[in-house]
């Protein structure tokens, strides 16, 4: 497990994601102006200016501060929704794949019905219903990002759940499961000790890929105006600043670079895990 012996891509991905996690968790400790306040003495200054390492946008918002907050929100949405989606999806999928019968029929039907919705339309609808201010009853609206997180979780459950189900069905038919059964082990023991450890690696690898996709999805929703509050996430920063591309190009490039690097890092890890699993499976 020495990091030293890993390929370059692994090192770079680890470095970037570690930096993101540090920014998201400890970034607020830095002595920076708030991402919501503007510095009227430094409107639209370029990168590496005094006092503003990543420059400011046309309103004088410090871009480092905005990016640190954006990391917290964008990564938060991705990590929380993938974790929840993988846990719930894995639970349902493994149950369906292991018990088969009517439980399988019900869970599979739920998966298929949710998968039949067009993702973008479903997300827009959920955000519109739950996160739009009610003109008659202001203040009852859920925060945009919370709605978005759960809406994405809802979409991920059938996606990851079907994968878990397929993997469970395939592993449950292996000889070693029959061996465990013929040694008189309980069904629960077989599930926990023999099947789940084999299902997890492929699920984790796909979860990494899903995390990358979600960051892109959040960016896309922001462009459509259904993402986070203006300037709060990577996607919404990009969405707000893209109009000023000619005046302050760095304010667009910085979130784009962050999104691209993060997606590549997640994809790398997902791919790295999958290759490892394939190599192992080819030896058995």
């Amino acid at each position: 497990m020495e990091l030293k012996n890993k390929p370059l891509g692994f090192k770079l991905s680890t470095a970037w994601l570690s930096l993101c996690v540090l920014m998201a968790t400890l970034g607020w400790l830095l002595p920076l102006p708030s991402w919501q306040s503007s510095d009227s003495d430094a409107l639209g200054v370029p990168m590496f200016s005094k006092g503003h390492i990543l420059g400011t946008d046309n309103w004088g918002v410090d871009q480092l501060s905005a990016m640190i907050n954006g990391t917290r929100i964008s990564l938060g949405v991705a990590v929380v929704s993938v974790t929840l989606g993988a846990l719930i999806g894995a639970f349902l999928g493994v149950m369906a794949g292991y018990t088969r019968g009517w439980i399988d029929a019900i869970i599979s039907m739920y998966f298929n019905v949710t998968l039949a919705f067009p993702t973008l339309v479903l997300l827009l609808a959920l955000v519109a219903i739950f996160a739009s201010p009610d003109p008659f009853n202001p203040g009852t609206t859920l925060p945009r990002m919370v709605v978005l997180t759960f809406a994405i979780t809802f979409i991920l459950i059938p996606f990851l759940g079907r994968l878990a189900r397929a993997a469970t069905v395939s592993w449950a038919g292996r000889d070693f499961v029959l061996v465990a059964k013929s040694l008189g082990l309980k069904r629960r023991t077989i599930l926990v000790q023999h099947i789940i450890p084999n299902v997890l690696p492929s699920l984790i690898s796909v979860s990494f890929l899903a995390a990358g996709l979600i960051i892109i999805l959040e960016g896309g929703l922001s462009i459509l105006g259904a993402g986070g509050d203006p300037g709060s996430s990577w996607g919404s920063l990009l969405s707000r600043n893209r109009g000023d591309l000619a005046l302050t190009p760095h304010t667009t490039f910085i979130p784009v670079a962050a999104i691209a690097l993060t997606v590549m890092a997640f994809n790398y890890f997902g791919e790295y895990l999958r290759t490892g699993i394939d190599n192992r499976d080819s030896r058995i």
Binding site: R174, D175, F176, L178, V179, A180, S182, L183, Q193, H194, P197, N198, P201, R280, D281, I284
Partner: peptide, 15 residues
């Protein structure tokens, strides 16, 4: 008890 045909697949690869 039973011994199975293929010892390659009769052991769990991750344990």
């Amino acid at each position: 008890a039973m011994i199975f045909q293929d010892p390659m697949t009769a052991l769990n690869p991750v344990r």
